[in-house]
Nucleic acid binder design. Structure first.
Lengths: 125, 125
DNA sequence: ATGGGTGCAAAGTGTTTGCAAGTAT
DNA sequence: ATACTTGCAAACACTTTGCACCCAT
């Protein structure tokens, strides 16, 4: 892996993601970071979000429409309110046996699976 | 529900999706339909894909990057090769009890869940 | 005839990238 | 000093939309 620099901007992005517990989108993170450093650019935020998730410092959550980021880095499942867009973490334990099972059935080198529950949250009902 | 018209274009889009067993993207469908009707526009294809999936005639599969469409309309899980982008259906039965469980735990009106396994297919390994 | 559907092109949305200048190491 | 990173803006990829005309019902 290339040597990486711990720039002020990267620290800032990480810090903002970790301060959130609601799975912010890149743009929300950009706006938040922007409150602290009013010069930082969108490109930099996107680049750092990418870098940080590759490094395993944050988790990239693929939600339909917009990608979100999560400060929890263990594998876990998500719950999406299809009305208001809220995303939350689920306590349901990650089932690693499924990956093994699918690997045996298909010959794929299964790395992981992603599960998103979709529904309407209590507030939106 | 509004009355809907069964236009030549809509039939064509449905027909092309049903002829595929490899989860084509909107653009692949557009290109295919285009071979038959060289006047049809992208907008029309997108509009019809949307309409058809709302009607339940086809399934909208949200894959990172591009949305895909599936002629299988029962709930099932998918397997994505993160190298070549191939998507396939899995035989793993849909676990409806999970939806019930999450509903009880969270108070959400859980409608469904989507699971995508990610890995490297035998050819790409 | 009526109003849903079409083709076209323009506009959106979210993200990536080329480049010259800046800065962590 | 080196080369990773930044800010900026332009470019991208994918999708949606406004509009005038068309056609299934």
């Amino acid at each position: 892996m290339k040597p990486q620099r711990n720039t002020r901007q990267r620290q800032l992005v990480l810090q903002v993601v970790q301060a959130h517990h609601d799975h912010p989108s890149a743009d929300q993170i950009y706006l938040d970071v922007r409150k602290i450093d009013e010069k930082i650019s969108r490109g930099t935020v996107y680049r750092n979000l990418h870098q940080l998730s590759v490094n395993g410092d944050i988790l990239h959550v693929r939600i339909p429409g917009v990608d979100r980021y999560d400060c929890r880095i263990d594998l876990h499942y998500h719950l999406l309110c299809t009305r208001c867009g809220a995303v939350s973490d689920l306590e349901l334990p990650y089932d690693a046996r499924l990956d093994e099972k699918i690997k045996e059935e298909t010959g794929y080198e299964v790395e992981r699976h992603r599960t998103i529950f979709e529904g309407i949250c209590p507030e939106c009902q």
